[in-house]
Design a protein around this nucleic acid. Sequence first.
DNA 1: CTGCCTGCAAAACTTTTGCAGATTA
DNA 2: TAATCTGCAAAAGTTTTGCAGGCAG
Lengths: 152, 152
Amino acid sequence: MLDDNVSHVMFCKHNSECKCIESAFAERRIPLTSQRKAIWRFFTANTHAYTVQDVYEAIKSRRIGQATVYRTVCILLEMGLLRRIVDSAGITLFAAVQPGHNHPLICHKCHEILDFDVCDLSVLEKLLVAQTGYTIQGHRLEIFGVCPKCQA
Amino acid sequence: MLDDNVSHVMFCKHNSECKCIESAFAERRIPLTSQRKAIWRFFTANTHAYTVQDVYEAIKSRRIGQATVYRTVCILLEMGLLRRIVDSAGITLFAAVQPGHNHPLICHKCHEILDFDVCDLSVLEKLLVAQTGYTIQGHRLEIFGVCPKCQA
DNA sequence: CTGCCTGCAAAACTTTTGCAGATTA
DNA sequence: TAATCTGCAAAAGTTTTGCAGGCAG
């Protein structure tokens, strides 16, 4: 559960010149091609969630194929750099995540995303383990709302 | 945030003879056909999450079309009787929800689901409102693990 | 009865795959 | 250089739609 004394939520600003991607790929011996960089740069240029089509449309002028976008999104998901979000209409969106434990606050209208790091579900998880016998592997917490711009 | 004194989680047992569906459809003046009943009965017979294909395969002997399953799942989702879950592989699953505020505890292996009702994110939500200016509309909290049967 | 529902089959949309040539480390 | 990647186009998989006939209320 959340700490009752929490008074400040840490928000992550996406760094458009994020260097972690180079080392992340290097560590795993995965080639970092210009296409993969372009796709990652697109995701980190704004704090928004996008569909695969959004990404493809935005970068296809550079002759990057749709299959490459799918393949790259898949790699970034597995590396934990991207998160999958399914909106209320069932549309699949992807958004960059900062490293560490974060949850998204998502605008229903424009898909603007703010990551926050406050979340302590350990007591709830212990309770569930005790009462159900399940082994807990993880959780997904997403908060939906409307951002200040879209309220106007 | 969760109440620190919470000592008991309320779990919902799905009631296979659930009558609420009749009144839920009647209230909205939506015809409750035999196909819709069959689909709902399938979801409430077990506490599992299923794909549309699972449902279709299970009941197609009764000459219920795939389109009907899609259309019915859509209605049940909108009525709040079903919830959509996307597993880690990106597969879309649906599961019955008890009325009221519940969250699912999902087995990664067999898709067995237990609903729990303990979740108080009001302090976190207030904090987010104060610090971001977002209007909060709702949240999704899902906990993933492995059920006792699958651990064996 | 009337209006909404249904199965079927086709259409639309989304995601994956195979391959010949290109690029990374 | 060797291994992996890429765009393209086709295949596979998923979801939606149109329509003629059927059923709930």
